[in-house]
């Protein structure tokens, strides 16, 4: 698992690559939380390079979403592969987190 970040006009884009499972969920949580600064008003997690996410990983996404919501910052996911989109759909996470087809759409949204 690797996270690469860049900022575009006050929006943080975190590209998550590889696998997130129970073995590295803590690492994922720490990496993602420390990448986000208090000034970020919009955070987009780009999952284009994500090959697998377990429920431990979903929990991290939920934690980040809750934290950002508590300080009125926006959070969205984009570019989910078919199977990962399915995980978000089955668990119902797509109902509480904005999901976009591409990074451009997420930036526009």
């Amino acid at each position: 698992m690797e996270i690469k970040t860049e900022r575009q006009n006050g929006t943080l884009i975190a590209k998550v690559e590889g696998r997130v499972d129970s073995a590295n969920a803590r690492e994922f949580e720490n990496a993602l939380s420390s990448a986000i600064s208090d000034d970020d008003t919009y955070v987009i997690a780009d999952f284009e390079g994500l090959s697998y996410i377990s429920s431990s990983g979903l929990r991290v996404i939920l934690l980040i979403a809750k934290t950002l919501r508590s300080r009125n910052a926006k959070f969205a996911l984009c570019s989910l592969s078919g199977p990962i989109g399915e995980v978000f759909k089955i668990s119902g996470f797509d109902k509480i987190i904005s999901i976009y087809g591409s990074q451009a759409e997420a930036l526009a949204g």
Partner: peptide, 8 residues
């Protein structure tokens, strides 16, 4: 309809 329990 439903989502994972404990979230909201």
């Amino acid at each position: 309809d439903g989502i994972a329990l404990g979230i909201m």
